[in-house]
Design a protein around this nucleic acid. Sequence first.
DNA 1: ACGGTAGTTCGGAAATATGGGACTATTGAA
DNA 2: TTCAATAGTCCCATATTTCCGAACTACCGT
Lengths: 107, 107
Amino acid sequence: MFFMVQFLHPARQDITLEGVLAALADPVRLGIVKALLSEPACMSCSAAAPCPDIPKSTLSNHFRVLRESGLIQTTKKGVEHRNVVREADLNARFPGLLKAILKHAGE
Amino acid sequence: MFFMVQFLHPARQDITLEGVLAALADPVRLGIVKALLSEPACMSCSAAAPCPDIPKSTLSNHFRVLRESGLIQTTKKGVEHRNVVREADLNARFPGLLKAILKHAGE
DNA sequence: ACGGTAGTTCGGAAATATGGGACTATTGAA
DNA sequence: TTCAATAGTCCCATATTTCCGAACTACCGT
C-alpha cells in the first residue's frame, strides 16, 4: 500500500490561466494565498487557513487545488507541510496577474 | 405567467472579486468576454459564443453568470440580446484587474 | 513502543453545472 | 393578421464537482 509518492506540481509552462482563476475564485483559497504572501517564510497548511473551523479534509482539498493549479509549492518538513506561493513562476507565466488580483482581495 | 421581468445586473459596488474570478475561470465565459471586448459594438449572445456547437441552454446559463457577476450588461434589442462588458464599472471597482486577466486569455 | 499532531484518502451526501425539450417574445413575410 | 423563423429563457433530469466525517499514514518526542 503506497501513498503520496510526491506532491504534484505543474511545471511553470503548464500553469494555465483558467486553473489560476478557478483556484483563486474560492474565498478560502484566496485567503490562503493572501496569508502566504503576507509572511516571508513558509507556512503550514493549518497556519495559513483563513478560519480555524474549516474541516481538515476540506482544507486539504483546497491545498491540493492550489498545488495542482501551480499557485503554491508544498514541501514536507517533518510532520507538517510548508507552503509558498510560486511568485516567480506566476510572474513569469502571467506578468502582473497575481498582484492585480491580490490587490483587491479581502474587502 | 410572466417571465424575465428584467435582467439582473448588480450595482457597481456589489460586484465582488470572487464573482468576477469565478465567472472568468470558465473557458467559454472567458472566450465570450474576449469576443465582446474585441468589438466596439454590442454583440448578441450567439455571436459572442467562442464555438458554434455550444447548446443554447448552456450558453444562456453562461450569459446569466456573466450578468450576475457584473461582468456584462445585457439589453433587449428586438429578438436578440445585446451584450457589453461593463468596463467602466469593473475598472472603477477593481482597477487593472480586467486588463491583467484578459492580457493572458487564449494562449 | 506509544501518544500526539499534521495532513491525506475514502466514500457518501449535498451542491452545482450541463443540456434536451418546451416555451416566450419579437420580427418579417404572406 | 396570421404564420414561420429566430434568439433566448425556463424546467428538469442527469452528470459532475465539492464538502466533510471517519479512518488512515507519517513523523516527531518521550
